[in-house]
Amino acid sequence: MTDPIISLRAVTKVYGSGPTAFQALKGVDLDIAAGDFVAVMGPSGSGKSTTMNILGCLDVPSAGTFLFRRHHVETLDRDQRALLRRKYLGFVFQGFNLLSRTSALENVELPLLYRGDDRKRRREAGMAALDKVGLADWWDHTPAELSGGQQQRVAIARAIVTRPDVLLADEPTGNLDSERSIEIMELLTDLNRESGITVLMVTHEPEMAAFAHTVVHFKDGLVERVDTNHRMGQEVS
């Protein structure tokens, strides 16, 4: 077995301090192999989003270690973590989070702008990413002119335009109907298979989790159980 791309050890997270302090994570151990498609499930408040924020280098653990591509993320400062996100991570949110009044293409190009790519490369890569999510014809539409499913696909295009190692999606289908949700899941499956992107996805719906190889169950700030999905016929060993 190769080294896991993500490795959490005894990660805790405490929000607030003093008598109002709340321990959202109580010692999470989790390894994720490169190329895996992981669904994170669990009751509300069990710490799924908290974990995703740490994995996404948006937040740091209160204690414990987080190894990502051999970086000790818990020791990195804000800007160093921003650079990790820029290089290796892509985000998809429940609420899409596209820039309003901004065309689909400009939204997708945004991460490339921060990478310093020139106009031509931004355009090419942006259009390629939109093409991948099936929205090449919609490049000049603003979010207000797109359906929820289309917006989420633009968001996915934005997340993958930098060819990240890991795609993090916190309830990506939470705002979509089941038909649209299945489309998104198929898209994520494709990306995982064809581009080899490691996908980490939080979901409440077992139908969506069924698309993943690995399902991590959270409960009360701890990993309760890790299942391997045999239905896909691709056991991760």
Binding site: L58, D79, A82, R86, L89, N97, L110, P111
Partner: peptide, 16 residues
């Protein structure tokens, strides 16, 4: 604020 959040998540450093 949300736009700034998006930019930061995408990997903008504070200075940018």
């Amino acid at each position: 604020t949300r736009e700034i959040g998006i930019r930061l998540a995408i990997g903008a450093v504070a200075n940018e």
